[in-house]
Amino acid sequence: MTTDELIIATCLKAGKIMVENGSEISRVDDTMIRIAQNAGVVQANTYVTITGVMMSIQGRNATQIASVTKRTIDLEKVSQVNQLSREFADQRIDLPTLHARLGQLDQASRSFPLWLQLVGAALVSGPLMIMFRQETVNTWPTVVIGTLGYLVFYLLNRYLKIKFLSELVAALLIGFSAEWAYQVGWGTNINDIIIGSLMPLVPGVPLTNAVRDILAGNFVSGPARAVEALISAAALGFGIAVVITIF
């Protein structure tokens, strides 16, 4: 591999990892340009969207495209790429090492274990229900149903790989469980239970990134992310609406 090719491959890999794991576009752009400059390229051009990353070196015969087909949320990886880029800028690692480390990072999964994510879901659903509704009677049903809903979403998303469908099923399950908890007298207010239990599934990352991308002037990726957030919200809303209509 020539140096030009290696520079482009490294930048594309960094950009691809960042887009895949939920970074905003301007940061990806910035990181890629910075890696290229620290590798000795005077002028590099990047074009980053949420479905693909392109890069060329001005005046030389080198342009490459990396497509982004899967998108998950793993901000740890975004932070790691950032860290590696900083180390490269400080000349603590050289370009081949950076490329190799990015490859390792892409393979490795340093996610929190499932049980900790479930604890997270419990922590989101219970406290937010109390904060929004100012009551504590329905805390336990909310915590249990919220955790269950997130577990179903996680498992379906892992094996089905269609995010919107997983959200729809999770919302249906949350709705029916809340209705059940109300029927057997465990909870007193079905609305509060549903509001709290849905909170772990809120599309926070696409929504925040949509706003940030649009504010930064990325009018291709910002609205695309907004649509993603909107479809997620619609899937959740539709699941709940079905339950409300039935009962």
């Binding site: 996610s111 929190f112 604890v119 997270g120 879901a121 406290p127 937010l128 990352v205």
Partner: peptide, 17 residues
């Protein structure tokens, strides 16, 4: 306290460092 817990929980879900 609840606000702190909720933010911590969401941080665990989206896997921040």
């Amino acid at each position: 306290i609840l606000a702190y817990l909720a933010v911590l929980g969401f941080g665990l879900i989206i896997n921040i460092p």
